[in-house]
Amino acid sequence: MIDTAGRQDQLAASLAEVRERIARACSRAGRPAEDVTLVAVTKTYPASDVVLLAGLGVTDVGENRDQEAAAKAAEARAAGATPRWHFIGRLQRNKARSVAGYADVVESVDSLRLVSALEHACDERPGKLEVLVQVSIDGDPARGGAAGDDLWRISDAVAASPSLRLGGLMAVAPQDWDPDRAFEQLAVLHRRLLAAHPAATTVSAGMSGDLEAAVRHGATHVRIGTSLLGMRNPLR
């Protein structure tokens, strides 16, 4: 039997700590705390946690596996929780229609073929699907993300789409990079994107271990899992 009250207390305490970290990081950067949105990364955790987090005021939730996310979004919705769902994992084109059915934002678009797949997947969707173009900080294709001229070609294609909306950029700092170096590079790219697409104001960057560096360099969204929900169980 799930100890709902106990889990709610755990989440409330962790949420307060994470929000305080964000507020301190914003203060040091000379930014209002309201500038930064917390995306709770709930992968491997049950829909009941999403419901509890929504009750605690969390508005945005991130998932990275479609099979898990689709079922979880439906279960949470049935329980009355309707956060904004962010798909943050690498997306296979054959999963585009499923993801477009529940996600409000897809943060991991890194190819023109994926842009096309999402366009076709949105033909029955009311309203546009928000898209963030994933940046490859180090240019390693194994990590996902777009680099060089591909980044701008993909951004332009999303912006021109009748069914997609270009929200901005997303990136993960490579493990062997200093986070400040990684997010400073992302900030430079974002300024270039804004020159061409002024409405693409979102920068999704920073996780439990490096959110301060991300906020320092202009992140508008931070994706927090472990610091909020605890250590994950191994994926099966």
Rank of each mutant, 00 (worst) to 15 (best):
A121K: 00
K72Q: 06
V106C: 08
P83E: 06
H86E: 11
R93W: 12
R84G: 01
K72P: 01
A81V: 05
E119V: 13
F87S: 00
A81N: 07
C122K: 08
G80C: 08
G80Y: 05
A103R: 03
N94L: 12
L112H: 05
F87I: 02
R113L: 15
S108D: 03
I88W: 03
A79M: 10
V105Y: 00
A79W: 14
A76I: 03
S111Q: 10
P126V: 12
A73E: 07
L114G: 06
R84N: 04
V115T: 04
A71Q: 14
F87M: 15
R113V: 13
S108M: 02
R97F: 12
A70N: 04
A103T: 05
H120P: 03
K95I: 07
S116I: 02
G89L: 02
R84M: 03
S111T: 12
A78I: 07
A71V: 14
A103P: 08
S98V: 14
P126A: 13
V99S: 06
A117R: 06
G89D: 00
D104N: 11
A81W: 10
L91M: 09
D123P: 00
V99R: 01
V105P: 00
A78T: 06
G80W: 07
A76L: 05
A70C: 09
Y102R: 08
E119N: 14
K95F: 05
E119Y: 13
Q92Y: 09
A71M: 11
E119G: 12
F87Q: 00
G127S: 14
K72C: 06
C122S: 11
I88P: 02
A117S: 14
A100R: 08
Y102A: 02
E107R: 04
C122R: 04
R77V: 03
R93Q: 14
R97S: 15
H86L: 11
K72H: 04
L112Q: 07
N94F: 13
A100S: 10
C122G: 11
